[in-house]
Design a protein around this nucleic acid. Structure first.
Lengths: 159, 159
DNA sequence: GCGAAGTGGTTCCGGTTGCAACCAAATCGC
DNA sequence: GCGATTTGGTTGCAACCGGAACCACTTCGC
């Protein structure tokens, strides 16, 4: 018997990518169908609804999206009158973004939908498993950050 | 105390997406830096090296990529003389794709690199945890497929 | 056999993404 | 205070991606 070959289907980054894409596509399809919102737009609304008015910079931190993506999502949401900008007294470059009443209404509808989707998707995991899964994702995340900083140090050294 | 707000940072699809993107970016950076290969190209090479000559159709199944993505990856790999096409005697529309000697050489180098990356990335999980994690991903995947088919049935009904 | 339907592969095109350059306002250094 | 640097936000652009139309060949139905 030959040594076990390393198959793509055993490669964890590949498996993560496949599952995550499947989940994301399903979530995106739901939001698109029911509210005409894409995921970046929904993320912005979720954060604004949860944490109140924010600048774009803060949204970048909270959503882990690119600042261009945040900007575009905000533009769309503003055009659809779901959020509004008000000048930032303490910094003339930025604005405070917040949900309009219409935006808040959508937020109140969309959050239960989101939680419902999550519940259905992850119904195959027990409460404990979901908790473990979440914790493992967090640890993997940390590890990536750690490795990234090591690598950056490496290339710094070489240059 | 108000009911716990549903935060984006507790939303599992979001967490999966963040972690997976971080992992994918790191893997992609390594392949790009060392072999000038992108992930779709690497996936095709991994499958060809593992399972021998395949048609594009078979690669679509094995890699879970879009057929356009497979086609493009193959075109690039062929231009770089890492794979070659030979006519398919039993079906004039398709070709058999297989690694060239140069391709095989790269494959032999790249697989250990891939496994090394995987090892470093997932070193924060114990052997048992990795196994559980993998199994959970698979279950989530299945669940998505199940829900997708339900939904398809739904829309069929309505139309 | 031959026309119709199906399938593998390719091309085209519209949409999305993210980097890099840029502008405007704020902060720093002196 | 005033030029130099930094930072929030915006725009431009090039790469990427995937659906849909398309072509070439094969298979099905008769």
């Amino acid at each position: 018997m030959p040594a076990a070959k390393s198959r793509l289907t055993d490669f964890l980054p590949y498996l993560m990518s496949v599952s995550t894409n499947a989940v994301s596509d399903m979530v995106a399809a739901q939001y698109q169908a029911r509210f005409g919102l894409k995921i970046p737009e929904w993320r912005v609304m979720a954060v604004l609804g949860d944490a109140g008015p924010q600048t774009q910079r803060q949204l970048v931190g909270a959503t882990r999206m690119d600042k261009v993506a945040v900007n575009r999502a905000c533009k769309v949401l503003e055009e659809r009158c779901l959020i509004q900008r008000s000048p930032n007294a303490s910094d003339g470059r930025s604005h405070h973004l917040e949900l309009t009443p219409a935006g808040r209404a959508v937020h109140e509808e969309i959050m239960p939908l989101a939680l419902g989707i999550e519940k259905r998707l992850f119904a195959v995991l027990s409460v404990q498993e979901r908790k473990d899964f979440k914790a493992m994702l967090a640890r993997i995340n940390e590890q990536v950050c750690k490795l990234e900083s090591l690598q950056a140090a490496d290339t710094d050294q070489k240059s």
